[in-house]
Structures are given as C-alpha cells and as structure tokens.
Amino acid sequence: MWRAVASNALTLLIVALFLLGGVILFGQSTYRAAGPLTEAVCLRVQPGSNMSRVSADLEQRGAIANGMLFRVGADYSDKSDKLKAGAFLVPAGASMEEIVEIVTRGGASTCGTEVVYRVGVTRKTVQVRELDPATGRFVEVVSFNPAEEETPADYTRVRAEADTRYRIAVAEGVTSWQVMDSLNNIELLSGEISRPAEGALAPDSYEVRVGDTRESVIARMQEAQEILVAAAWESRAEDVPLNSPEELLILASIIEKETGVAEERRQVASVFANRLDRGMRLQTDPTVIYGVTEGVGVLGRGLRQSELRRETPWNTYVIAGLPPTPIANPGRASLEAAANPDETPYIFFVADGTGGHAFATTLAEHNQNVAKWRQIEAERANQ
C-alpha cells in the first residue's frame, strides 16, 4: 500500500514539475515575444515610480498583455530596482524584455517634450515641441522670441517637468558674440563665459541638461569645430591659395556670409580663390559689415559709402588678402568649399534677385549684372 502511495506521489511530483517547467518556458517565451503594441508610444516614468505603476500604465495602453509577467521578468533579470525616470519611446511590437531594457538602461529621454533654443543670424527663438511617436517627427507646441515676446505658459509648464529635454541649435554664420549672448540668457545653464574666438564654434545642435555649465557647452562647440577644420584642411586641393587652417577658417566664414544657397558655395569660393591668386582685393561686403559691428549684434541696414571706404582690419575693399580673423562661425559645407573650390574663371559676382548670385569673368559682364540687380532693387522699393 505504502509503495503505491509513494509511487503515485512521485508521479504527481513529476507531473507537477513538468507542468511548472512548461509554465516557466511559456512565461519566458511570452516575455521575449513581440508585444501587442501596434503603434509606437511615449512612456513617461515619473521620479519615484516603480515597476508596478509602469506595468499598469503599459497594460492600459496596450503595450503588454500581462503586467504580472512583466514585473516577474524584471525581477528575474534583477532590473526592478534600476528603473529610470524619463520619457521613453516604446516601438511597435516591443517585447516585455525590450521594454524593461528601455526603462532601465538610463541615458537621455528618447521622446516627449523638447525645448530648442535657436541661435539665428538675425534673431533668437525658443521652440517647444513634442515628438509624435507614430511618425517619429516633432510637432511644434509654441515658438517665441524671448527678446520681444512674453514667456508663454506652455514654456513655463514644460520647464517644470522633470523629463523635458533641452537643445541649443546654432545656425551657420552666427558670430561668437551672438552665441555668447544667447548662452548667457539661457537660464537652465550655469556659470559665466567670455566671448570665444570668432569662427571657433561649430554650428550644430547640442543637447544640454539643467545645470550644465556654459563653459562646457562652448568647449563642445570648439572641439567640434577643431575637428571640422582639421578634416577640411587635410582634404584641401593642392592649389588652394591658403597657407594654414586659420586662413581656411577665415575664407570659409566669408563664404558662409556671402551665400545661403548651398549649390553656390564652391562657386563663391572659386571667385575668392581666383582673386587671391591674382593679388586682387576680395571686396566683399560682409567683411565691411564685420568691421562696423565687430560681430556684436546685427547691422540692420545697408552699408554707407563712407563705411565702404573706411579702413578697418576687416574691410577687404581697403586691405589686401584675407582679414585677420574669421567674420562668423562657418559650417562644414563652407569649410569644405573653401578647401576645394570649383575651377572657374569667375572673379566677380553680385546678387541676382533669386537669393543666389550672377557670376562673371570680365568687368563688363559684371557691370551688366550689377545694373540688372540695381533695377530689381528699384522695382522692389516701388512696390
């Protein structure tokens, strides 16, 4: 009798162990399988939250099928206590294992609200935008000019949220004074900075965090520009009339200020290269403007004849060759254009009314182009 009981008990134990093993295998398979989410979502994890709250939110949004299995999987992988606060993009079909990894690995938030401080050539703006998880594109919430408009409530609201991300976007062609002035007025940064050397900052988009020092942001911009200048200098054409990376940077800054048309940069560079080769003065208005403003603010008007004749270190109507410093912070494309100009016979160019320029080889051709431009200016003035 006891043998029968022991035999039955052993059989039940084997069956129970078999079933338990099946349950574990099923659980592991479900935990690692593609999830039910059909469209990406942005998951916000508040500071002080836990896996129980996160799993409930995920269940409610249809991202996981079983909250308990999600929590067990997180416990089993020793990640329950590694939950990070932030806003995280959960892609469509993400498994529970993948979602646990997303919310515990740390780093910057990958979705949600972003504030972009834009440093432009003529104005500064602050933009609040939200990432649309379905399209992966940002949607603008509000944009304002802090120097001219009151601070919107939406900006105040997102500044108070812990998972808001911040970015500083520096446009090509801004001066170092404009960057310094903008950084000094961004309240989430700390410390003080003096004006960096002109041309030493790479125009780009830089992610920052609350409490970052202004000095550290400038250092990142300088390091990025050093890399760009070195790469452009290394790849320069053999016959380019430049003697150093600094001269390359100076010429690139002039190209940057002369044209906003990407396709023209190498043509504009060719004009200046041809003039340098022939010992001609560059005679470019942006250098005259820099001589007037020295990069502080925007001139906001046309040049006067007296300013075109005034001798300053940057007035290329008066001085020979390149000015002593850059006149702005050029981007990668202008650096590459300065290093590798097009091969053209052009030594003149003037605006053509379309946003681009008309190029010429002879003074007679150039005078005709200038006359056309003056006519366009007169017609616009009478409209």
Rank of each mutant, 00 (worst) to 15 (best):
A169N: 14
V103D: 06
F138Y: 15
R167K: 15
R195H: 11
A92V: 03
T104R: 06
A40H: 09
S52Y: 14
R304E: 10
G173R: 03
T284N: 06
E311G: 00
L37M: 01
F349N: 04
P330K: 07
L282D: 02
L308R: 03
A237N: 13
N8T: 10
E98T: 14
A16I: 07
V45F: 07
V54F: 09
A6L: 15
T135E: 02
N274A: 11
S270H: 08
L58C: 00
D212N: 14
A339R: 00
I227K: 15
G300E: 05
E130M: 13
S334K: 01
Q283G: 01
G86D: 09
E264S: 00
R304F: 04
A231Y: 04
V41C: 07
G356M: 04
E130Y: 11
Y290A: 02
M96S: 09
G93S: 07
N50S: 13
I254D: 01
V318A: 06
L282P: 01
L228D: 07
P47V: 06
G21Q: 10
I186K: 12
W314D: 03
E140F: 03
P330Y: 06
V370W: 05
V45H: 02
A252K: 03
V240C: 02
V54I: 14
D212C: 08
L131M: 14
V158M: 07
V268M: 04
E307F: 06
A337D: 03
G199T: 08
R281C: 03
S244M: 00
A169T: 15
V5I: 15
T135D: 04
S253P: 01
G353S: 02
S176R: 09
A200V: 13
L248S: 02
G86T: 08
V126A: 05
A197C: 08
A40N: 10
Q383Y: 08
M68Y: 14
I99Q: 04
R278Q: 13
E198N: 09
A202Y: 12
V261P: 03
V23K: 07
G173Q: 01
N50C: 07
E336I: 07
I319C: 06
D212H: 11
R236E: 04
A237C: 10
R71H: 01
T287Y: 04
W2E: 13
A87V: 07
T30I: 10
T156E: 15
R278K: 13
N8K: 08
I347N: 05
R123Q: 14
L188F: 05
L13Y: 09
A85E: 13
N315G: 03
A197R: 15
N369L: 11
G67D: 00
N185A: 14
V115E: 09
E246L: 13
A364Q: 15
S7E: 06
L83I: 01
I376N: 12
N243A: 14
L248R: 03
S334D: 01
D277N: 14
V90A: 10
G331W: 03
E256H: 03
D81P: 00
A360K: 05
Y155C: 03
A200T: 15
R380F: 02
Q305P: 00
A378D: 11
V179M: 12
